[in-house]
Design a protein around this nucleic acid. Sequence first.
DNA 1: CTCGATCCCTGGACGC
DNA 2: TGCGTCCAGGGATCGA
Length: 298
Amino acid sequence: MPELPEVETVARGLQREISGSKIVSVALGKTDFIDNPEAIESELPGRTVLRVERYGKFLLLRLSANEQAKQGDEQAALLVHLGMTGALMPKKVSEPQAKHTHVVMMLGDGRELRYVDPRRFGRIAYLAGDVLARELQRFGADPLEAGLQEFTRRIHGRKARIKALLLDQSVLRGVGNIYADESLWKAKIHPAQLGAGLKREQVEQLYVALQRILKRAILLRGSSISDFLDAEGVPGEYQQHHRAYGREGKPCFRCKTAIRRVIVAGRSSYFCPSCQRAPRRQKKKGKTKAQRKRSKRG
DNA sequence: CTCGATCCCTGGACGC
DNA sequence: TGCGTCCAGGGATCGA
């Protein structure tokens, strides 16, 4: 599940591998996850990948102007969201095509940039000019670029639960389930705590924890839980450093209490019930029972 | 503003 | 060996 560190890792790899490469032609497979397949086919050929950046959980492939030099197509880019299972990698043309390869961009040097995504939870879009600018504006601050003041402003006044806030891409861009849980564990904050219910020091602790964890994860090339691979096909190593995520029933690294898993904001949330105390006056009535029976229906 | 529910999709785990 | 079922989960969307 590519989040900020994984996408950053892929972006760096692609920057090294394909920046400067020209896209000669494009072939599409299934396109139901692509905003505008026709634009992909008509706009990409002839353009050069100027550089590859990360924007939240998106890869942003900045493209050169079209050779026909149309008006207003400056600032053109290909946005790629990897969803849960997406992978974007350059391969030699001679290499067999993996199953679920949905986009193939032929490069000018005998390689292809291939997008593979079994579940198609990803997203691809060709955007330019104002449309691109507007799309990017929808997202919140990059957690590695935001200062403590901005971070606090975005968290402290909110009534939503902190887990939901961390996952909300319009609040912070790039944080997903793994790094939300890891940073909350490190800051000793319960995932159901309200943003507005956090003390000043807690917000600061969370800010520091989140940045440290993200930076460390980037150094280790991200977390490979199921099948994440970077642009070179190499798995990350940060999963070996997880303290909460995926550790239900295992002892907390601080106090040995068994890590618990609950659903918060619709997502599995792993936390230490001893280190991360539940919100005080939060307390509804029955719930666990209702949860287990709500499922089926397909 | 915030919530839960639902849908998208496939592979993997599990039960029989 | 092969079904059927459940689950995972980021994000969009809709109704409460």
